[in-house]
Amino acid sequence: MTTIFEGAPPALQPDHPEEAAALSRLHARLETDAAASELLDVAYRTVDTPIGALLLAATPEGLVRLAFEREDFDTVLEALAARVSPRLLASPARLDAAARQVDEYFAGTRRTFDVPLDWRLTKGFRRTVLEHLAGIGYGVTESYTQVAAATGSPRAVRAVGTACATNPLPIVVPCHRVLRSDGSLGGYLGGLDAKRVLLGLEAA
């Protein structure tokens, strides 16, 4: 397109400031129109935290996914498009409350999350485990064995580990509060450093 004229007109150059401003305005309008027309199946945004950027995604029903940077946000968004809906837009408005609560949690001023959750990315035993985790209080930890016993499947310790490792809503559903019976950390989707930070924050 830049070959129409000798020397591309500024209006056709990439990242023309007026065009970039127009596109950002139009994006905001699309977010509003899409939500009003019930076409915004998944809205997402990122928030910066002491353990790196987090991606928050919500359906009209509630928060559906929280992801760590090391999971690669593009991969996470592609998976959401496939598993929930491709009608997915960067749209911070729907995530205002969740983002604020995440900020407050990392500032140490919030101990429980109070946002609607959409559990559709987990089911069966994994969901049972995660619902149990939701009841483990701030600063409290349980072992994988205890969680298995509490969910009525005392021999399913490994499956509890898998449920934690595939938790679509980490931090909010506190799988970081589950440790090995000997007190060692076990695993964490966000990395063991992140798990240490979260446990340290809650122990303070």
Partner: peptide
């Protein structure tokens, strides 16, 4: 498999605006 619609907006938004 479909890409997120956000990607469609990012990739083609400027062209559609020029059109």
């Amino acid at each position: 498999m479909k890409h997120p619609f956000e990607r469609v907006v990012q990739q083609h938004g400027a062209t559609v605006l020029r059109v």
